[in-house]
Simulated assay, not measured.
Amino acid sequence: MGILVLGLGNLLMSDDAFGGRLIEHLQQAYVFDEGVTLLDGGTLGLDLLPRLEGIARLLLVDAVDMRAKPGTIFRLEGEEVPRAFASKLSVHQMGLKDLLAVAELHGYLPGEILLWGVQPQSIEMRLEMTAPVREALPQVVTGILEDLRRWGVGWRKAA
């Protein structure tokens, strides 16, 4: 059974790009044990369902609107994860909530789900993330690496 680290969001929408940018960073900076998949899921929603088959643990990364100060970091587990998407920041988040529901119906829902999220400042059409969200990235990377280690995953810095 594998582990999927899934970044979500639209790379063209400023802070909504957080999930994809974080996955890109992990792919460039680290090498992980076999059985760990890093995926920029973009805005695919239900199209990601086949990627959940055989996954024991799912770690999601996304910009989430929790009505907090921009750049605030959130780590949510289990039942807290779908609730984080009750306030939809972007179209893909409706798809994610549906994805988790359909995965459960098909028996694909991973046994453990974590969400690392950051409060966006802007989701306007722009390629750059805002400073508060960009500055949150290293702390989220550290948290993800710690969670993966807790799950028994080995990793090392890329050469």
Rank of each mutant, 00 (worst) to 15 (best):
M94I: 13
S122G: 07
S90M: 05
V36W: 10
D47E: 15
G19T: 08
W155L: 09
V140P: 03
L148E: 10
M129W: 07
G107K: 11
D62I: 00
E79G: 11
V36I: 03
D40M: 00
L58E: 02
G19L: 03
V102D: 05
M125H: 14
T130A: 08
Q139T: 13
R83L: 14
I3V: 13
L22D: 08
L49W: 06
T72R: 04
L49K: 01
T43F: 02
P70A: 06
H25P: 01
L145Q: 02
G45A: 10
E135W: 09
A159D: 13
A17E: 03
L137M: 14
G7A: 00
L22Q: 04
P50I: 08
A56E: 15
L137R: 11
V102S: 06
V91E: 15
Q121T: 07
R149Y: 11
T130N: 06
L100F: 10
G2C: 12
L105I: 13
P82Q: 07
V140N: 10
L26C: 09
D15E: 09
E34Q: 14
V61H: 01
V61N: 01
W155I: 00
L114E: 10
R126L: 06
Q119N: 10
G71N: 02
D33C: 06
A131R: 12
L48H: 02
E79D: 15
G42F: 06
V133D: 03
R57T: 15
T37R: 12
D65T: 05
V61W: 01
A63Y: 00
G78L: 15
L49Y: 01
L100T: 11
I113T: 12
D98E: 15
L39K: 02
E135R: 13
A159K: 12
G7P: 06
D40R: 06
E112F: 03
Q93D: 11
E53M: 14
